[in-house]
Design a protein around this nucleic acid. Sequence first.
DNA 1: TTGTACGCGTTATCAT
DNA 2: ATGATAACGCGTACAA
Lengths: 333, 333
Amino acid sequence: MHKPTIQDVARLAGVGVGTVSRVLNNHAAVRDSTRQTVLSAIRDLEYVPNPHARRIAGGKSYTISILLPVITTEFYVRLLDGLESAFQEARYDVAIFPLLDRSRLERYLGSHTLAYQADGLVMATYNLTQMLSENRLRDQQPMVLVDAYADGVDCARMDNHLGGRMAGQFLAQQPGYSYAVWVETELDQIFTSRVFEERSAGFHAAMAEAGRTVSGEFISSFDAHAARTVAGQVLDAAQFPATIFASADLLAGALLDEAQVRGIAVGSDLKVLGFDDQPWAAARGLSTLHQPVEAMAYEAATLLLARLSGYRGPPRVRTFEPRLVLRSSTGDS
Amino acid sequence: MHKPTIQDVARLAGVGVGTVSRVLNNHAAVRDSTRQTVLSAIRDLEYVPNPHARRIAGGKSYTISILLPVITTEFYVRLLDGLESAFQEARYDVAIFPLLDRSRLERYLGSHTLAYQADGLVMATYNLTQMLSENRLRDQQPMVLVDAYADGVDCARMDNHLGGRMAGQFLAQQPGYSYAVWVETELDQIFTSRVFEERSAGFHAAMAEAGRTVSGEFISSFDAHAARTVAGQVLDAAQFPATIFASADLLAGALLDEAQVRGIAVGSDLKVLGFDDQPWAAARGLSTLHQPVEAMAYEAATLLLARLSGYRGPPRVRTFEPRLVLRSSTGDS
DNA sequence: TTGTACGCGTTATCAT
DNA sequence: ATGATAACGCGTACAA
């Protein structure tokens, strides 16, 4: 009663192993009737191909390494979902490497571990421009950046500058005072993520174009406790009517909480615009900028898979745009 | 110019492939002279065994899955180091699964991915008692808990109760007022980590035994910004001379910072005791509780490897004790 | 102690 | 379109 193999499937379906393999990899033309027979045999036996056997027979590892920062956010959950689903379709496995510290990056990239285990590399969020220019990355390995941008590599990125600009344009239409809350970002020459910098630049550009001034800006670190504290500071300092752009839903949520405690009506005197469209945003009526994260992740995977199947063209960059979702926190709908 | 295989090594060394394999797995008795020959051939060719080939030939995956919470701490960096080094010695690969959310745990445990990819499971920090009792974990898979405890499974854990107790005993010897700062922990029936609860219980027990009272307790979330804010609150509220037990070095560091800004002399009027012994603790003279993290991780790996090689005995629990390191922040040394 | 040969479960290459 | 069969690189009985 061992695990069924491709042989068992072939026997049950009354075909050769080659045919089964072809069905598995949707190769060439297989007559539709036999394909169905094979498929049902697979189902009956609950057959699951042995990945190690394919790896050795195919000469590839059928594995993609994903390197990402360790941050527990909906954003990364969705990112991983998008990546995994895309790679799964192409029958690739995924190995996740959480970048807890700098030395781990070096180790992962330098060691022979990855060399064997991955046909390609996905790097999330980090801006690797410097590393690439220093040639610290072995560019013989196909790779793609997601939620980040660098020259000379395939990238799938969010247009955070545009996101900030959209927020700025929205705020510029609102009467009263404008405020913004930003996320404090670690500074590390190599690991830097410019996400919030870009949102800020876009926001200020739009406000300036509209001839509006920002009455106050605040900075919070990315955690619930700090967000709440800063929310208090913002509401203490704000003059009303006020519209606040919170550059992450986490911060916006804290503002909603704090406003409720203080009995401030959200949607009229105080308007709040977030960024992310977290799962709870709709339920709480938070207006925010929705990011097509899964789509971006899926596209990143597609770019990489293209390289893996031989595409040799110049680096391609795919840019994704956030979408303004207006709800009750800005008095809409 | 392809990757050297075991055949190439055998040829160069003038032996059979069997012998090379035996050397690789330090099997049986191989004459020492031939072993050296083989070894040098391996070095010359820079031969690295193809893991997929072993997996399919050996019928095992030679892979261990490590499931851990996504928290960027020195603690987890060291934990991974300890685990990886131990498994590497035994020629096992490691697959890391960051538990970004609940659904990911379920997916990892339920899916067939892991089934193929791992011979064993390491689960870090999370308290899985409930999951185990509900039989949601397929216990056919050998597993070990590290930095956590549950009935019926091998565990390598830190004695956090003792750690808290040691802190309490130390504070009880100090003149003046005693304060404590705790880390806010998420509440989730399944994911709960009881680390800080235990430290708190031990601390209070020791203080009570010594007939001392705690003049104030504070809670901070686990991030630099919040820690700094809370540090300010603590120093605002404290009466001096004061000794503060910060249940994590991160919090202790913030207290040191805040004290410096306020010109409070640390080591006399204000004493601070941390927990963790982060890399910077020595340089900043922070007294703290050092945890033998690598040793714990190594032991966890050893317990699991024992299961993998057939050990069938009852669950074993290994407990590790923190060590009080006194430096200038408590006026010592 | 050591070499040979077979088997692991796939994919790929041939014929057919 | 499909079936046989040769790789793929290694572990391991078995024979020597």
